[in-house]
Amino acid sequence: MSVLPMTAPAASRHPYTRLCAWLSKISLMAAVGMLVVIIVAVQVQVVGRYLFNDTPTWAEGLALQLVLYVTALGVAVGVRDAGHIGLESLAALLPEAWRLKLELLIHALVGVFGGLMTWSGWTWTRLKWDELDPMLGVPVGLDYLALVIAGVLIVLFSMEHMVALIRREEVVPSWN
């Protein structure tokens, strides 16, 4: 949440903001769907272990894989919805011109972090793509692809916040 005085959420009419809102909402819905699959996979694992004395290996591997994606998507959506750690108490004490600069700096640093996530995640995805996960039989690089997806979204959402700050508009959370 920004400490600058904002206008009505007119940013929702801007095509880039609508794109980011759509990406955020899709990410949130995908994360919720993956949480449901995690719950089912863990239940299959428990039933297999305690009722049939035969634990399916895919259930644990799938749950672990999906936890990575749920976390990555949740972090990205948190950036868009301003759920990340900020310096708002410090910013509130500053004159308005300095507040804008500080908030732009914060979003720029978050964007740089997202860029580093993307770059390092892609590096690891490529390096580990030829290795197979023994429990699922899929490339280990899929684990790191979650960082790439989250990093790209974080960069996009940080840029959205910077543009909104400059235009003195509000970024409306994706669940609205």
Rank of each mutant, 00 (worst) to 15 (best):
V110N: 06
A82L: 14
W98L: 15
A108D: 08
H84E: 13
A82T: 00
L104D: 07
S89C: 07
V112F: 06
G83S: 00
L93V: 01
L100E: 06
W98V: 04
L104C: 14
A91S: 05
S89Y: 04
L109N: 07
I85R: 02
A91M: 00
R99Q: 15
L87Q: 06
E88V: 10
I106W: 15
W98C: 11
V110T: 13
A82K: 04
A91Q: 00
L104V: 08
F113W: 15
G111A: 09
I106K: 11
G83L: 05
A82G: 07
L87D: 07
L102D: 00
E96R: 14
A91H: 06
P95C: 00
H84N: 07
A92R: 10
A82D: 04
S89N: 11
I85G: 00
I106G: 15
F113R: 08
K101G: 03
V112L: 13
L90W: 03
I106F: 15
E103K: 03
L94C: 03
I85A: 01
E96N: 09
A82R: 01
G111F: 11
A91F: 11
R99H: 06
L87I: 00
W98G: 08
R99L: 05
E96I: 09
A82S: 11
V110L: 11
R99G: 06
L93P: 09
A97N: 09
R99Y: 04
L102S: 03
L90E: 03
R80N: 09
G83F: 05
I106S: 15
V110F: 09
F113I: 14
D81F: 01
R80G: 13
H107Y: 15
A97M: 08
L109D: 08
A91K: 01
A92T: 03
A91D: 01
L87M: 14
F113K: 08
V110W: 02
G86P: 09
E103I: 02
K101D: 04
G111E: 06
E96M: 12
H84M: 04
V112W: 00
D81M: 06
L90C: 05
A82Y: 12
L109V: 12
A97C: 02
G86H: 02
P95R: 04
L104A: 10
L102N: 02
L87A: 05
L102H: 02
V110H: 08
E103G: 14
D81S: 12
R80I: 00
G86M: 05
L105E: 14
S89I: 04
P95Q: 00
E103R: 03
L109W: 02
L90G: 04
F113N: 09
A92C: 13
G83W: 14
V112C: 08
